[in-house]
Design a protein around this nucleic acid. Structure first.
Lengths: 271, 271
DNA sequence: CGCACAGTTGACTAACATCAACGGGTGTGG
DNA sequence: CCACACCCGTTGATGTTAGTCAACTGTGCG
């Protein structure tokens, strides 16, 4: 479903420099459009390079123009900025247009919040808040990013009119259950090595479905975020990455990862 | 949202006796209605004692009658029977009317499939298959159970006409993401004890929202299922239950559990 | 140049898995 | 009705994995 090629980019292109001060600003003003005029064609779903893998996937050109109404508002976030915070009222979903985000669960008993998700372009953020109307976690930009704001009330109205859109949104929600449920539940039973390998393979697959190369990508999260995400410690993560590299399965320095032996990794992951 | 009281039953009522032979029959014939006549009023959503917590939650009486069309078909399953199997084509969702189910992920490399979910009355089974159109796991009845078959195509059609129904289904899907994502992701980081305690607390809460007492309930899964579900071993599960009992937090023999010290458990669970 | 911090490596320890044995309930067959 | 067998649950002894604590390296930034 998400496997169509749509646009090629090199994985680690332009990395915007930002001082830490700038990066940790909590709230970035809503940006309607750089030129402050009505949204241009460029700003619409129908012309977006992600349209074949994102929300409007599978719609006809005619239907696409209807969906353009939904996404008139974009929001840019610098690295470290928060898209929403735990406790915020739910009003919109966010389609990631560029960049990436981590979701961080509520901090429990002093310890830092657990990283509960890594989100790439074309994915929808905020789905979990539909039921409670309150965001359950923080969503933080891992790099300079841009999202399309999708007002939920408008979306549901449009869904009633466009069965294809309704079907697709249900599909996305269902897919999230599969991913979270499947991958994560298995986390409970997997060894630390399987978790790390599974993480890399999952990332590889997701990059591929976006049209990137699946063998060479950039993990934007820091080691401690990865560790938290996988439910292990930084040290273990590190040791495993070193071991994988020593065994010639991957090449990893800092945030860049290259997969050298895909089948070897699959073997390790337990499939 | 799901917290309304609707019907009281004692937790461990009638336990139907079945020989193992009967219990392990793989497929139970579709049962339209015991009397083989057109569905009676009794067989409709609008009269179902679960209507306030199940699929039709929040609908007006008028809308309820429309939904009755969806659930004309019921299916009874004896303990051990499978509602669907991994690989089956997705056509319907199943609303659990009575009993309970476990979902079992695909077996990997010889080992038995991991238990990935425990499903109680009023919950919808099969949601994950919406995206792939193929069921990803087996669903097996933990006791004699009955489900309402909800044909998915019909459901989506009706959703387009009834915004309230659409909203509720989206809510259910979103809630599943929260539950799976939240609870399960944390599994990765939790100690074995926290997992067991969290499991008991979650079960307690779910029983409560069905109108049962939250302090005394019956866990239908066997120890090895619980262990698999939590990603630990039978022995560890057992040891922890023993310890919890020794410390006066619970009373547990076989499948029946009584919570003696709720706050003590909450304390242990890490909240 | 030095500070701060992310990342890496090593030594030790705690938690949990594994292996093995046993008890007790339940269903089966005599 | 009783005895046996099987399965589930429980407990103990030992081994392995990954967490903890600590030190050190490399990198980016003022």
């Amino acid at each position: 479903m998400l496997n169509r090629q749509c646009a090629k980019r090199t994985a680690g292109e332009r990395e915007t420099r930002l001082t830490p001060q700038t990066a940790t600003i909590a709230n970035v003003p809503l940006i309607r459009h750089p030129t402050s005029q009505a949204p241009t064609v460029e700003a619409s779903c129908s012309k977006c390079y992600l349209r074949t893998v994102c929300l409007p996937c599978g719609l006809t050109p005619d239907q696409l123009t209807q969906i353009d109404e939904l996404t008139r508002v974009r929001r840019k976030l610098v690295r470290g900025a928060e898209l929403f915070r735990q406790g915020d009222r739910f009003e919109s979903l966010y389609a990631i247009r560029s960049g990436s985000f981590k979701s961080v669960g509520i901090a429990v008993r002093g310890q830092y919040g657990k990283v509960t998700g890594l989100h790439l372009p074309a994915e929808l953020l905020g789905l979990d808040a539909i039921s409670s109307q309150i965001h359950e976690y923080d969503a933080m930009a891992l790099e300079d990013s841009e999202v399309c704001v999708v007002p939920y009330a408008q979306l549901t109205r449009l869904m009633s009119q466009l069965p294809e859109l309704q079907a697709h949104v249900l599909c996305i929600l269902s897919g999230d259950i599969t991913r979270d449920g499947g991958l994560m539940l298995r986390l409970g039973a997997m060894s630390a090595e399987q978790r790390v390998v599974g993480f890399l393979l999952g990332l590889s697959r997701r990059c591929e479905s976006l049209g990137y190369a699946g063998t060479r990508f950039s993990v934007r999260m820091r080691r401690d975020d990865i560790a938290s995400y996988l439910g292990i410690t930084v040290e273990t993560t590190c040791r495993i990455l070193t071991r994988l590299q020593r065994d010639g399965l991957i090449e990893a320095n800092m945030k860049d990862v290259e997969i050298k032996n895909l089948n070897g990794l699959r073997e390790l992951s337990g499939y």
